[in-house]
């Protein structure tokens, strides 16, 4: 996997639930806020921080349990 595809892979897995527009916006916002990086600069080492940064957003939309399940899945599938 190339380093630039981390954000795409995460957004791709969020898309079925929150739509493509918000999936991209969330990844971009968390990458900026938590890591000070543009989405295309994300590397596999940033995944854990990205996933943790997405947790409050997803929790607000689908509850903590579903958000944790989804983020665990993303953590498993995106390396």
């Amino acid at each position: 996997m190339t380093t630039s595809s981390i954000s795409e892979k995460v957004a791709e897995r969020l898309t079925p639930y929150i739509g493509p527009f918000n999936a991209r916006m969330w990844v971009k916002a968390v990458a900026r806020r938590e890591l000070g990086l543009a989405p295309e600069e994300l590397k596999p080492a940033h995944l854990a921080t990205l996933v943790d940064g997405l947790r409050p957003y997803l929790g607000a939309l689908m509850g903590r349990v579903a958000a944790d399940d989804l983020l665990l899945q993303i953590g498993r599938e995106v390396h």
């Binding site: 898309t15 079925p16 639930y17 929150i18 739509g19 493509p20 527009f21 918000n22 999936a23 939309l61």
Partner: peptide
């Protein structure tokens, strides 16, 4: 509208 294309819309 913002969530369109996603289940949660």
């Amino acid at each position: 509208v913002s969530l369109r294309g996603g289940l949660f819309s």
